[in-house]
């Protein structure tokens, strides 16, 4: 899947907000690409834009292309997009507690996608549901399929969401902070489950998180977002060993080290800029520790540093040229 120059705007009473501003992503088959960034930087909006799930009236999504399976998804009519959604391209959400419909049986909610996309008969779909629930590690799958969401814990519900997303064997799975709402031990289980399924099915995963630890564990490549833009992109090892952007450095510095070599957690001072009032030059300038005078004026481009490493900082840009 390839996303070129994705821009998403919202109509708000206070004016037009561009929550995502020119994102490029390339997701290779069977790989996991991470997107990290602070709350509000536009991670969810990016994923919902790709899925075409933003509320129609208030939002406008544009892009040069969102290429999936050789076709431009963005140019498709809604009816055709629906054939892809939940079928070849599926999504897991941040909030397992509220993402399942409280009034329908779990099994029926999973079966829906099977019946709609794969035209399965009811009994056939139900068999597949039980198999899926077993696959995502739910005990007593036959019984659980007949239960309602409120009877399950958060971790179990997220497993159900994964079963639902994986029902039609999608080639792309977008996971928007799938473990943020869960306990640490459950988090690890869910991540392991996703890795296992990926290994079995060859699914490409776009993993959205604000946890660099999760990225280190799960991803091949990683994209760092700030205020609706990509500020740095690299393979995980490269990014951890050789971060270029001051924001990435800040994020890494705020990670606790396993060897305890760090006395205290550093955090980046300041706040994400208000999307209605974005700095004119570098968007990170107000919080940057090594800010230069020209940073307030010049907009840095995403500079190519070679071997899949990109960085949006005037320093990198100048080095590059």
């Amino acid at each position: 899947m390839k996303v070129l120059d994705l821009k998403t705007e919202f109509q708000t009473p206070a004016g037009v907000v561009r929550a995502v501003d020119g994102i490029n992503l390339t997701l290779y088959p069977g790989e996991t690409l991470g997107i990290v960034g602070e709350s509000g930087c536009g991670k969810s909006v990016t994923s919902l834009s790709i899925m075409g799930l933003l509320p129609k009236g208030q939002s406008r999504v544009s892009a040069q292309e969102i290429k999936f399976d050789g076709k431009n998804v963005l140019a498709m009519p809604e009816s055709q997009m629906r054939q892809i959604r939940g079928n070849q391209m599926a999504m897991i959400f941040q909030e397992p507690m509220t993402s399942l419909n409280p009034v329908f049986k779990i099994g029926n909610q999973i079966a829906e996608a099977l019946q709609f996309h794969l035209k399965m008969k009811k009994t056939e779909a139900w068999k597949k549901v039980v198999e899926l629930l077993r696959l995502v590690g739910i005990p007593r799958p036959e019984a659980i399929a007949k239960e309602y969401p409120h009877e399950l814990s958060g971790g179990m519900r997220q497993r159900v969401m994964i079963a639902m997303a994986m029902a039609c064997n999608p080639s792309v799975l977008i996971a928007d902070e799938p473990t943020t709402a869960l306990d640490v031990t459950i988090q690890a289980q869910i991540l392991n489950l996703m890795r296992k399924l990926q290994a079995e099915k060859g699914t490409a995963i776009l993993l959205i998180t604000h946890d660099l630890g999760v990225v280190a564990e799960m991803c091949k490549g990683v994209v760092v977002m700030y205020a609706g833009q990509i500020v740095e992109e690299a393979e995980v090892k490269e990014l951890f060993n050789n971060p270029k952007h001051p924001y990435t450095k800040g994020l890494l510095a705020s990670l606790p080290r396993l060897d305890g070599s760090q006395d205290r957690l550093e955090s980046i001072p300041g706040q994400v800029p208000n999307p209605l009032n974005i700095p004119k030059g570098c968007r990170f300038a107000p919080r940057c520790a090594i800010k230069m005078d020209r940073c307030d004026q010049l907009k840095p481009e995403l500079a190519d540093l070679g071997h899949r490493h990109y960085c949006r900082c005037l320093l990198c840009q100048e080095e590059d040229s």
């Binding site: 892809i84 959604r85 939940g86 959400f93 993402s99 419909n101 409280p102 829906e112």
Partner: peptide, 11 residues
């Protein structure tokens, strides 16, 4: 959220 989930299934 669950209505969005239903849409995400492609229904």
């Amino acid at each position: 959220d669950y209505v969005r989930t239903a849409r995400a299934k492609g229904l």
